[in-house]
């Protein structure tokens, strides 16, 4: 299942590893949709890791910004 998911991601995302720079923590990994690294131009999407989840909820509430949670496999 995990292998299939990975294969599907790489196929759609065009293959090859991507990296995502997280805010407050680091994440390096292969592509994940919406594909950190396959951003449609203008640089890479920056992500927090799960460790920043609680802080993200607080920041969303205070800043008025919605949240986007991206659930993926740890490759």
């Amino acid at each position: 299942m995990r292998i299939l998911a990975l294969a599907a991601l790489l196929t759609v995302a065009g293959g090859g590893p991507y990296s995502a720079r997280a805010e407050g923590a680091s994440y390096e990994g292969p592509s994940v949709a919406p594909a950190p690294g396959r951003s449609g131009g203008g640089g890479k999407i920056k992500w927090r890791t799960h460790k920043g989840y609680d802080g993200a909820l607080t920041e969303a509430r205070e800043s008025g910004k919605p949240l986007m949670l991206y659930f993926t496999a740890d490759f």
């Binding site: 995502a20 997280a22 994440y27 990994g29 994940v32 950190p36 999407i45 920056k46 992500w47 927090r48 890791t49 799960h50 460790k51 920043g52 989840y53 993200a56 920041e59 969303a60 800043s63 910004k65 919605p66 949240l67 986007m68 949670l69 991206y70 659930f71 993926t72 496999a73 740890d74």
Partner: peptide, 12 residues
């Protein structure tokens, strides 16, 4: 414009 969190299945 959104707060973005990447949650992986090892740790998250």
């Amino acid at each position: 414009s959104l707060i973005r969190v990447l949650v992986d299945n090892k740790g998250g």
